[in-house]
C-alpha cells in the first residue's frame, strides 16, 4: 500500500506515535480516491505529514485534484502547512517518516517563515467592450477607420482584417500597461510575489504571500482598481495554502 502525501505541518501532539488528536484533523476528512480515502497523520522529526492511502492507478482527475486542495484547505484551518504538489506518493508510511526526519530542519524553517501567511492568486482579463472603447478613444486613426468601415457596411474582408489587427495591437498595449498597474498596486502589500504558472491566458497571473491583515488590504485595493479602471476584470483566489512559496 502506497501513501499519498498532501502536506507537511508541525507535529505538536503529546504522543507523536499515537493517533491524531481530535482537534488536529476535522472528523471524517477524506482525500483522493473513489471511495475517498480517510486522511491521517504520519509523524516524524517533530513534523506531521498529512496523508492517506493512495488508490491504485491514481490519475489527475478533477475529483482528486479537488480533494487535494480541500484537504490542504481544511488542515490550513488549524495549522501552517507546506502544501505538496498534486500527486506526491510515497512507498510507505515509514518512508514518509524517514523523509520528515531527514529534512526536519529545512521544513521547520519554512513553516516558521510561512506561519500566519496565506497565498492569494490574482488574475486579470479585460472586459472586452470597455477595453475596445478605450483603445478607440485613445486613437483617432482607429476611430476614422472604424467610421469609414461602418459607412461601407463594415468594410471589405481585408479592411476588417487590417482594422481588427490594429485594434488587437492596441488591446495588447493596454494589457501591458494594465499589467503594470495591477502589479504595482498590489505588490507593495505582499511579503513576496511570484508569477503564476504560464499555462493560462490572463495578462496578469500573480501569486502573493500575505499576512491576514494584508490580505484584507489586497481585496480592498483590487476592488478599488476595478472601480477606477472598469476595463479590468480581476479574479482573486484565496486564502490558499502557500503553493507558490515552498521550496524543496
Amino acid at each position: 500500500m502506497t501513501t499519498y502525501v498532501y502536506g507537511i505541518a508541525r507535529d505538536e501532539r503529546a504522543d507523536p506515535a499515537g493517533p491524531p488528536e481530535p482537534h488536529e484533523l476535522p472528523e471524517g476528512l477524506t482525500g483522493v480516491g473513489d471511495p475517498p480515502r480517510p486522511v491521517r497523520v504520519v509523524g516524524g522529526g517533530g513534523l506531521a505529514a498529512v496523508v492517506s492511502d493512495c488508490p491504485e492507478r491514481l490519475r489527475p482527475k478533477r475529483r482528486d485534484l479537488l480533494a487535494h486542495q480541500r484537504v490542504l484547505a481544511e488542515v490550513g484551518r488549524w495549522a501552517t502547512v507546506l502544501p505538496m504538489r498534486f500527486g506526491s506518493v510515497s512507498d510507505s508510511d515509514e518512508k514518509v517518516r524517514a523523509v520528515l526526519a531527514e529534512h526536519a530542519e529545512r521544513y521547520r524553517e519554512q513553516l516558521d517563515r510561512l506561519t500566519g501567511r496565506v497565498e492569494y492568486n490574482v488574475k486579470a482579463v479585460h472586459r472586452e467592450e470597455v477595453v475596445l472603447h478605450l483603445v478607440l478613444a485613445g486613437n483617432a486613426e482607429l476611430r476614422a477607420l472604424a467610421a469609414a468601415n461602418r459607412a461601407t457596411g463594415g468594410g471589405s474582408y481585408e479592411e476588417r482584417l487590417r482594422f481588427g489587427e490594429l485594434v488587437a495591437h492596441g488591446v495588447r498595449e493596454r494589457e501591458v500597461r494594465d499589467a503594470a498597474l495591477v502589479e504595482d498596486s498590489l505588490r507593495p502589500l505582499a511579503e513576496e510575489c511570484r508569477p503564476g504558472p504560464e499555462s493560462a491566458g490572463w495578462f496578469v497571473n500573480l501569486s502573493f504571500l500575505l499576512t491576514r491583515p494584508a490580505a484584507e488590504r489586497l481585496l480592498t485595493t483590487a476592488a478599488g482598481l476595478e472601480k477606477s479602471h472598469p476595463q479590468l476584470d480581476l479574479k482573486v483566489h484565496g486564502p490558499l495554502p502557500p503553493y507558490s512559496f515552498v521550496t524543496p
Binding site: 506526491s88 506518493v89 504558472p197 499555462s199 490558499l240 507558490s244 524543496p248
Partner: peptide, 20 residues
C-alpha cells in the same frame, strides 16, 4: 485558477514518486 497551482506549484520531494 486553483488547479494550475495544485498541479504546477507546491513542494516536490525527490524521495516521493509523482503521479503521471
Amino acid at each position: 485558477d486553483v488547479l494550475e497551482l495544485v498541479l504546477d506549484r507546491g513542494l516536490v520531494i525527490d524521495a516521493f514518486v509523482r503521479v503521471s
